[in-house]
Each structure stands twice: as structure tokens, then as C-alpha cells.
Design a binder for these strands. Structure first.
Lengths: 212, 212, 212, 212
DNA sequence: GATGAATGAGGCTTCATTCAT
DNA sequence: CATGAATGAAGCCTCATTCAT
């Protein structure tokens, strides 16, 4: 692994959990200080390794952040896919997805902070992430919406691409609101899933207005 | 905000629009490079002033960013309030707000980049902004929703706070998507206002499902 | 000069001799420690400026060394040209050149060390210097030799290019020997000029051997 | 020279020519990158051993360079002594020595680069080498010159020490010129031996000038 | 002997900020 | 008010060396 440029280092190698420890420490420090104010030396400290060791596993500070996010995100997408496949009704799938999203970040405040802030710290960075990972999320939802349209439970004229943005934006914004509230919320973030999905499914208008 | 006797008579005075020039230059550079990669010297260059001059108007780099965002945001909120007051129907107000939001950022890509990325730099920064400015936006929308509920056009059981987040999140996400698309979109971002608001008002489900 | 990449900074600018002070300090430190063991911070210390100031005048450590050598060498070549033009006899010109070369370095041990060691510290570096500066030296001598051949005082069949190398190599080696002798030589290095030139002019063989 | 088992009985022992392999790799890498830019890990790579193994054979990086140069130089001096003893005429001995010198380095560009550049890294390093090894070379030539004076073929008044420097300097400079020429010379470097020695023996002046 | 993952000291360089002019 | 040369703290990263296996 030495001098190798891969970031994909096998964490399972020779009794070493350093890779994962560094990743965790990175998330922790970045959540606390923000990426640019995070010091490599502090991440190393918390991971219990020497500064230089970081560079045996990651090319540089930037790649370390990317790796931390990638790792967390892939785990989430994988779990999401599995869970969604267990549900039949497209509406329930949306509900499930919102729940998983809120639960994933709601149960790990540090990770949530990183996702809601550092991930967007520069247009270039955001674009990079967006292209490589977020599309997976969006495609997943797009699939659900199309499925729902075919099943006749979602309006046929719904512009799928934009609807996906609404869904993601709404859920995402809840997370942002949540991390900004200093007091520990007394209710789990994931409880909001139903509320949000209800709004998105039924709309804000009174039913009376429909069919007009 | 310092020295802002804006609307000031002395704006015409002996060549001193430096404050605004610095603000504009800051937005420009920050949009291009990201806040942390922006150099005070470059902002000074583009504003056509000396490095040191910046510090006559702003306490430090951080406050410069804050001021730039504040200035732009206040302008927006002011215009929004005025425009909304001209509309009676709460639904039309939402439509208008979405339009103004999308138009404001859609017509100034640099500003959009700063809002979608730099604003969310770090949890601390975001919180600071959120408390001081974003609440004005949220309160505005909250007012519209309550008004709509009273008028009977919005569902009475709608949880206003969460609905506001959905609205903001959806619109916000459209802007993010837009700045991430490299190709210059051939349609104005603001055109999407109607589509988004329709989704939020009527929901994604087929009308048939309502009334159950 | 700020942020400019020129290394040719005008030393005479606004009451500042910093450029020259840095150059001198660089030669001093490099002579003592060798280029790679020289620390920018120590050069700054001795020049009486802040570390960062070095970078207002030089792009980086490498360019600082280059500039120091360039500066010293150009001074030498200029003086050499002037002096040589005052002498008519090509043989005396060679003698003069050897004298100037030995005197220049013999009177500045630090500079001598830099020229004999650091200048050659990597093939790439040496090549760079060789192409841009040493050719001036070589061309000067070549001119003298050709002049001497035309005047009939140097052998016509003498391969000029190689002879120039012999001349330079011989003088150069004397300097190297000199800096390697720890004890301060009790005679000036420049005294050797005559001896070296005599050997090169008359050869090592006994005269009797000539004409064979 | 690689894998030369000469004089070592234990070279045949269980696959352990590592010492020489490391030495060869060191010369190779140092010639390419220069000593300070050479990485111990790269030398280990090319030698096909682990980084740590280097330290079983050499105390540190510096000693590795020293050993590499020593090894090569001793081989050269040994061969030179043998060859010179086969020649009777002191003039022919000089010619032979120049030839051997030029041939040794001319046939191994990497070695030449190391000798012409890295050897002169720092005054301290050069002095160290000079004292321990170069004196052997110089003494060899000194012997030849004295022999020639006794035989009456070299001028009796020739200052031997300085003449030796001229000889070495001239030959040495030819090598330097050669490694700096990027184009592969179309003639062997060793061909120049005669030319150089002719200049040193007969001098640059026209014969007519002698005997005056 | 051999390995190579881990170490951690320390250098070069950047750049926000100051202050004498 | 304005300047911009100078400052100097501080971080990322490299890489020679060690040592447990």
C-alpha cells in the first residue's frame, strides 16, 4: 500500500483498522471545525496515528474528505436500495427513502454536518460529488416516481426530474434545519419523514381545490 | 454594512464607491474560487483598490463575505416583500416568491454560486446567517401559509414550519442543480417557478387519491 | 513588485537594499551549509528580513540560488571583458583571465565554495547554468585563442574548443583545490595564474622535445 | 560491474548480492535525480529489496552515496595502476591515464553524472572524498610527472602539484562538457585523450616561441 | 537476515493583516 | 483616506529511519 496512490486501501489488511479510524476521525474533526479549519494533525491525533500515516492511506487532505463522504454515502445508498426493494407501493417507497435519509443523518450529527456544509464548500467540489454520487440517489427516486406514474398513483404529467429535486430539496432542507438547531431536538429527525412525504404527495392546497 | 449610509447622497461624492466595488469584487472572486481559495489581494485587485484599503471598510475577510451576502440578501428580501404585497392570493404569493428567488439567483450566476456553496461553508457560518437573515425569508413564507390557511386555500392541518422548509428546500435545490449544470441552460431558471409550486400545491399523487 | 514573478527586481527601488541583502545572505549561508542544507529561514535571518519577504523578491529557494550565482557571475564577466580589452597580446589575455578568475573567487571564499560545489549539484542545474552563463566565459576565451592563432602566437592546429576546456578546467581545478585546503593559504590564489598559464602555453614537455 | 562476484568468496552464498545491487541502483537513481532528490525508497525498489534492507548494509543515505562512489573509484584506480605499469614512457602514461579516465566515465554516463555533479555536493562532502580518494589519483599522476622529470622528458622546473591539477582539471572538464551535451556524442569521449594530452605536453604556443 | 508499515520532525511556502508613508 | 511592502504564524506534506514481525 505504501506509496500507492489508491485511496481504496483495503481496510482489512494485516490487522489494521487505521483506514477506518482515520476516516472516522476525519468526519469528526471536519464536523466540528469545518473542512478548511480542520488540521491534518488533529485528525491524525484523534485517529491515534502519526501525521504521516494519513498519507499512506490518502493522497492528501482533499482526498481524505472525499473518501470519508464517499464511504458514508455508498453505505447509505446500498442500504436504501435494499430497503426500497422490500416495499411495493411507490408512495411507501418515497416514505421509506425520506425515512432512511433522515435517519441516516439524524443518527449521526457529525456526518450530517459534513453532508450539509462541507460537501458544498465549493462549486467544484459539489459538482464532483454531484456527478459521481448524488446521481445514484436521484436515479433511485426517479425510478420510484416513474414506477408510480405507471402504476397510476402519481400524476402522469408530473415532470419527474423536477419532482426529484423537490423531494431531495425538501428532505435535505429538514436536515439542514435540524443541524442548525443547537438544542438537541427532543424528537427524532426521522419522525418528520411522514410529514414531509404527506405534503409532497397531497400538496398544500385543500382537497376541495382539486378537480376544479 | 459599515459606512453604509446607503441610499446616501455621498455616493456621488469624490469617487468613493469603493465599498460597493469591493463587495462586487468579493462576490465575483468568491464565486470563482470559493471563499477559502479567494485571496484578499485578488479581491482588492479586481476592485481596483490596494490590499490595505479593504481593511478600511471591513474588519477582516470573514466579515467581507458576510457583508457581501447580507447586502445581496437584504436587497432580495426587500424586493420580495414589496412584490408579495401586490399579490392577494396566497397561492399566487408562493408562486411569486419562487419566481423571485429563482430569478434573483438565475440572473446572477456568481451570486447563486456564493449562496449555494459559500454560505454553507461551515455549520457555524451557516448558523450565523440562518439566524440573522434566513429567518426573514422563512417568516415571510410562514406568513403566506398561515394567511392561506385562514383563507381556506391551504390545508388547515398543514404543519407550517415544515411546509416552509419544503418550499425553501425545493426551490433551493433547483438553484443548486442549475449552478451545477455546466451548459448554460437554455431556459431561464425562473421558468421553473410554476412547475415547482404546482407540485407543492397539488402534490404528486393523482387527484383520485384525494378525499379518502 | 508584489506578487510579481520577476526575479530581476530593481534593487534600487524605494530605498530598499533588501534584494541585495538577501542575495548576499544567500551566498553566505549556502557556502556554509550547502544549498540543500540551507534553510530559507536562516537566509532571511541573516538578511534581516522576514521569511516571507524572500518570496517578494524570489519565486522560490531555487531561483534565489540561481539569482545569487547569476548576479555574481555577470559582474565577473563584465569586469573580465573590460580588463581583457585593455590587453593586446593574446597570451597576456589568457594570463589576465586566469588572474581575474582566481582573484574573483580567491577574494571571496564563500562565493568560491558556491561556484565550485553548489553550482554543480545536479546535472540539470549545471546544464541550465552552463547554457546561459558559462558559454559567455567560454566564448570569451575562444575569441582570445582564435585571435592568438591569427596573430601566429598560438599553434594553428590547436583545437580551440578543447583548448578552452583545458584552460577552464585547469583554472577551475585550482579553485577547487584551494577551497578544499582548510588552512588559509598563505599566498593569494591569484598568484597561481602565471604558473598555470605557463604550463598551458609552453606545455609540460622539455623544449628539446619540440620540433620532433 | 553489476553482480560482480569478484574477489568475494561469499558472493556465491545464498543469493546475496544485495550489497552490490543496492550500490548499482544508487548510482542509477542518483545519476537521474541528483542525490538530494533521490529517495531511499526508489533505490530500494530498483535494487529489488525492502527499504529497511538498505539499512542493513549502509548506515544512512549519505554513506550509501559515499560507498557507491568509493566502490566505483577504487575499481578505477586499481585498473589505472595496472595499466600504467605496463607503459614505460611517462608521456604515454599520461596519455593512458587520460584515456582510462575518459573511457571509464564515457562508457557509463550515469557514473559520469554522479562524479561530475553529486560528488561536489557540498564543500564538506567534496573535501571528504578529496582527502580519502582523490589523493590516490593525484599521487599517481604526481609520480608520473616526477618520473618524467627524472627521465628528462618533462621540464624540470615544472611545479608538479600545480601541473597535476592542470591535468586533472583539463580531463575532468571534458567529462563535464560531455555530460552536459544532450545529444549523444557521435565520437567516444576517450578519443579526446590524445588531443588533451598533446595540448598539455606541447602547450598552446607556437613552437617557435620556445627556446627564446 | 528481510520486510515495509509506521513514524514524526521539520521545511517551504502562503497569505491575512498591519502600519509607516 | 489610501497605499502596498513587509510581516510571521502556521499548515501540508515529505521522506529518512526504525522496529515489530
Amino acid at each position: 500500500m505504501k506509496r500507492s496512490s489508491e485511496t481504496t486501501a483495503k481496510a482489512t489488511a494485516a490487522g489494521s483498522d487505521k483506514y477506518q479510524r482515520i476516516l472516522d476521525a476525519a468526519i469528526e474533526v471536519i464536523a466540528e471545525k469545518g473542512f478548511f479549519h480542520s488540521r491534518v494533525s488533529e485528525i491524525a491525533d484523534r485517529a491515534g496515528v502519526a501525521d504521516g500515516t494519513i498519507y499512506l492511506y490518502f493522497k492528501n487532505k482533499d482526498e481524505l474528505l472525499m473518501a470519508a463522504i464517499d464511504s458514508a454515502f455508498h453505505g447509505f445508498i446500498g442500504r436504501a436500495r435494499t430497503e426500497l426493494s422490500k416495499v411495493a407501493d411507490p408512495r411507501e417507497k418515497l416514505r421509506k427513502m425520506a425515512f432512511l435519509h433522515l435517519q441516516a443523518l439524524g443518527s449521526n450529527r457529525n456526518m450530517a454536518i459534513v453532508f450539509q456544509t462541507e460537501l458544498r464548500h465549493s462549486a467544484k467540489f459539489l459538482a464532483q460529488f454531484s456527478h459521481s454520487l448524488l446521481v445514484e440517489y436521484f436515479d433511485l427516486i426517479k425510478g420510484v416516481l416513474r414506477e408510480g406514474q405507471e402504476a397510476g398513483v402519481f400524476r402522469a404529467e408530473l415532470p419527474v426530474k423536477i419532482a426529484v429535486n423537490c423531494f431531495f430539496g425538501a428532505v435535505d432542507e429538514m436536515v439542514t434545519s435540524w443541524i442548525l438547531s443547537d438544542r438537541d431536538r427532543d424528537y427524532p429527525l426521522s419522525n418528520l419523514a411522514d410529514v414531509i412525504v404527506d405534503i409532497l404527495l397531497k400538496g398544500m392546497e385543500t382537497s376541495a381545490k382539486h378537480g376544479s
